[in-house]
Simulated assay, not measured.
Amino acid sequence: MHNAMKLKSPIPLLRRLAMIATLALAAWGTVPQAALAQGVAVLVNGDPVTDFDIEQRTKLATLSGQKGTSRQQIIEELINEKLKIQLLKRYAIPDVDKDVDNAMTNMARRMRQNSREFADQLAKQGVQIDTLKSRMKADIIWQQLVRGRFQASFQFNDKDIQQRLQAKHPEGIPATAAYDYTLRPILFIVPRGSPSEAFAARAKEAEALRAEFQNCDEGISRARGMRFVAVRPPVVKNSAELPAALRDILTKTEIGRLTPPETTQQGVEVYAVCSRKNSENTPEKKEIRDQLYNETFERLSKEFLKEIRSQAMIEYKQAKP
């Protein structure tokens, strides 16, 4: 009886504490010297978030219009970003870096710049291009993982859409026209670096073709015979998926005619409207489907992020404010 009531030896507990301390020291030992020189704010599974990272992300947030973001909010964003990128060690996602480069190129193009010019513009604002790339990489990884892991949750049927429509219009759902358009893009090519006069000249050629274009069969053949004109394969676009301005243009364009010329980076482009068929996918249904997707993604994203944070070793090296 006396032996049974003796306290257990503290040695196993001390061993466990020693092991934890050893692991923590090992993680600290793997931190790059450059990171130590910058000042480490947090370790995320041994991966450092430095004061420089925080400074960079703060500048990027300001450029993005996120004013008033606290240092701790930035730190938590960076912790989440590290965790998302670290998921590449557990899940195989092909061509992530290529997707990041493509997204960066598209972002630069929207600002009428190439990738180098865009990076230089960011640098002038004190933001390194790798800061933006890291955030984009985390977002791309996260989007793919959440969609793949919870794929069935993003399947919305007609009943889901109708319920939202009825709740929005209790007095009755209004009739809205929607169409599937078959379009033929026609590009009047302008070499890169050409002056504005070259674009203006090609726009005149496009307008001349537009005046003569009466149907797709004959008009497409005529366009193919023109110099430095590319006629692309047919594309089918639903009116619900188009911006309102383009939807309005297509509505006003007769079947077999061309849309007004539009200047692009490659030249001057018009679209031949070859057919228009009624569709059940109205813009309002598309809007509701997008709402359902965003609500579902946000809910599942929070749950998944909470899960991976609970499994992570997050060690704050600086006191929280």
Score class of each variant (00 low, 15 high):
residue 1 M to Y: 13
residue 7 L to Y: 07
residue 8 K to N: 07
residue 14 L to E: 15
residue 17 L to P: 02
residue 19 M to A: 12
residue 19 M to S: 12
residue 21 A to N: 03
residue 25 L to K: 05
residue 26 A to M: 08
residue 35 A to C: 07
residue 35 A to N: 01
residue 38 Q to A: 10
residue 39 G to T: 09
residue 39 G to K: 06
residue 41 A to Q: 12
residue 44 V to Y: 03
residue 44 V to E: 06
residue 45 N to H: 04
residue 47 D to F: 02
residue 48 P to Q: 05
residue 56 Q to L: 07
residue 61 A to W: 02
residue 64 S to L: 11
residue 65 G to A: 13
residue 68 G to V: 00
residue 69 T to Y: 09
residue 70 S to E: 09
residue 72 Q to M: 15
residue 73 Q to K: 14
residue 74 I to G: 04
residue 80 N to R: 09
residue 81 E to Q: 12
residue 85 I to G: 10
residue 90 R to P: 03
residue 91 Y to D: 12
residue 92 A to W: 15
residue 96 V to M: 13
residue 98 K to Y: 13
residue 99 D to S: 14
residue 111 M to W: 05
residue 112 R to P: 01
residue 113 Q to S: 05
residue 114 N to M: 02
residue 118 F to D: 03
residue 127 V to S: 00
residue 128 Q to V: 02
residue 131 T to S: 09
residue 131 T to D: 08
residue 133 K to Y: 14
residue 133 K to P: 08
residue 134 S to N: 15
residue 135 R to K: 15
residue 143 Q to H: 14
residue 144 Q to Y: 10
residue 146 V to F: 15
residue 148 G to N: 11
residue 148 G to H: 05
residue 151 Q to H: 09
residue 160 D to L: 04
residue 164 R to V: 06
residue 167 A to C: 04
residue 170 P to R: 00
residue 172 G to H: 02
residue 186 I to P: 04
residue 187 L to W: 02
residue 189 I to E: 05
residue 195 P to V: 07
residue 198 A to T: 11
residue 203 A to Y: 09
residue 207 E to R: 01
residue 208 A to G: 06
residue 209 L to V: 04
residue 209 L to W: 04
residue 214 Q to R: 14
residue 221 S to A: 14
residue 221 S to E: 11
residue 222 R to N: 11
residue 231 V to N: 01
residue 234 P to R: 04
residue 235 V to D: 04
residue 237 K to N: 07
residue 237 K to E: 11
residue 240 A to V: 09
residue 242 L to K: 00
residue 243 P to T: 06
residue 245 A to I: 11
residue 247 R to C: 01
residue 248 D to V: 07
residue 251 T to S: 06
residue 251 T to C: 00
residue 254 E to G: 15
residue 255 I to N: 11
residue 257 R to M: 11
residue 265 Q to F: 07
residue 266 Q to A: 08
residue 271 Y to T: 05
residue 272 A to V: 00
residue 274 C to R: 01
residue 277 K to Q: 11
residue 278 N to V: 10
residue 281 N to L: 12
residue 281 N to C: 04
residue 281 N to A: 12
residue 282 T to P: 09
residue 285 K to W: 00
residue 286 K to H: 14
residue 289 R to M: 05
residue 291 Q to A: 10
residue 301 S to E: 11
residue 301 S to G: 12
residue 306 K to V: 07
residue 306 K to L: 07
residue 308 I to M: 05
residue 309 R to I: 06
residue 310 S to P: 01
residue 312 A to I: 06
residue 313 M to R: 15
residue 314 I to M: 08
residue 316 Y to R: 14
residue 320 K to E: 14
